[in-house]
């Protein structure tokens, strides 16, 4: 899974780091002063590195909780995100992280207690309800057996019912969730693309049927499950591909119990697109004609007409109150 583990000297002695290192007794452990020495260097090649990524165990300095981008997520009002991890185990060709980071290594911030303190402080500062999104810079569950993210953070959210946590994932790592009592203020948001798009663009992602099975298990266990159909990539037969996906998904899942359902098209900041196109000059997705609006780039031929068609079909399965269109596409 990893080629090596870098460990910041400041966190090497912590119990969490020692537990993680104990899982990988044969892997080289490389000490470093700060993760940026490895992660933020110029001259790296994300594509080459993605073939042999390493894990970096580090301490998050500065604010751990940040305001969510405008239009991100399902709730109006106070929305925030936090990232205990940078980069994703999966290798989705459309992912904006390829253009955002210089390195493909995975950074896991192990000072969960500082995240917890920042989360509690942020919640205390809100007058009403607030929402926290996890999975903006990573997949929240993919590394769960190593990170034990849910085992640390969910008990905290259980004590803070005025806050809702959305965990965004493509993973099937739901065992830890199934072993605990469901939280009414926690939403497991599973991202799906059409099977055709998944086969083409989503490398190392678990099979669609296995992810659906995981979502159904969560629902059956009482967890609140949400569906995120994004990014929709405009290409021949895209409508039929998504109609087939909807039919398959809503045959397996109980639509009445779904927390929310959203659609978002493939969009990303122009700078990220430029970097990714340089990394993948042979990738058709980044060679296609595009349109740019407000610094965000999308494929020509996509846009409202396609999304309206998909929305119409989606609304034949779910209630309008369950649906929203994702306005921001910076999603792993």
């Amino acid at each position: 899974m990893f080629s090596a583990i870098y460990v910041e000297e400041a966190v090497h002695g912590t119990e969490r780091v020692q537990q993680i290192l104990a899982r990988y007794p044969g892997l080289p452990v490389i000490p470093c002063a700060r993760y940026g020495e490895v992660f933020n260097r110029a001259g790296q090649n994300f594509r080459v590195q993605k073939q042999n990524p390493a894990l970096i165990l580090a301490e998050k300095h500065g604010p751990c909780v940040l305001p969510a981008p405008a239009g991100y997520g399902f709730a109006a009002g106070a929305s925030f995100y936090f990232s205990h991890m940078l980069n994703c185990l999966y290798d989705c060709r459309y992912c904006f992280l390829q253009g955002m980071y210089r390195s493909a290594h995975y950074v896991l911030f192990v000072n969960y207690e500082d995240f917890s303190a920042d989360l509690q402080k942020t919640i205390a500062a809100q007058e009403g309800r607030c929402v926290f999104y996890s999975g903006y810079d990573c997949d929240s569950l993919a590394l769960e057996p190593v990170s034990r993210f849910t085992q640390f953070f969910l008990p905290m959210f259980r004590e803070l019912p005025q806050a809702t946590l959305e965990i965004r994932t493509k993973s099937t790592q739901v065992r830890a969730l199934l072993e605990m009592e469901p939280l009414s203020n926690c939403v497991i948001a599973m991202s799906f693309s059409s099977e055709q798009a998944g086969n083409r663009y989503e490398h190392r992602v678990p099979d669609l049927s296995k992810r659906l099975e995981a979502a159904a298990k969560l629902q059956a266990a009482g967890w609140s499950v949400a569906l995120r159909f994004e990014p929709v990539i405009s290409e021949p037969a895209v409508e039929q591909d998504y109609y087939a996906l909807f039919e398959r998904v809503f045959t397996v899942l109980d639509t009445d119990k779904l927390h929310s359902v959203s659609i978002g098209e493939f969009r990303m900041p122009r700078d990220y697109h430029k970097k990714i196109a340089e990394l993948y000059p042979d990738e058709a997705l980044f060679a296609q004609p595009v349109v740019v609006s407000d610094g965000l780039l999308s494929l020509r031929g996509a846009g409202d007409e396609l999304l309206h068609k998909l929305e119409s079909r989606l609304l034949s399965y779910v209630e309008a109150r369950q649906y929203y269109r994702c306005a921001s596409e910076d999603i792993a």
Binding site: S3, A4, Y6, P28, I30, P31, C32, A33, E37, V38, R41, Q44, V48, Q49, N52, A54
Partner: peptide, 16 residues
């Protein structure tokens, strides 16, 4: 100054 070659899995022992 410290520099970090990207780890490559080739079965060799690694060292500083």
């Amino acid at each position: 100054a410290a520099y970090y070659p990207t780890p490559i899995s080739c079965g060799q022992n690694m060292a500083v």
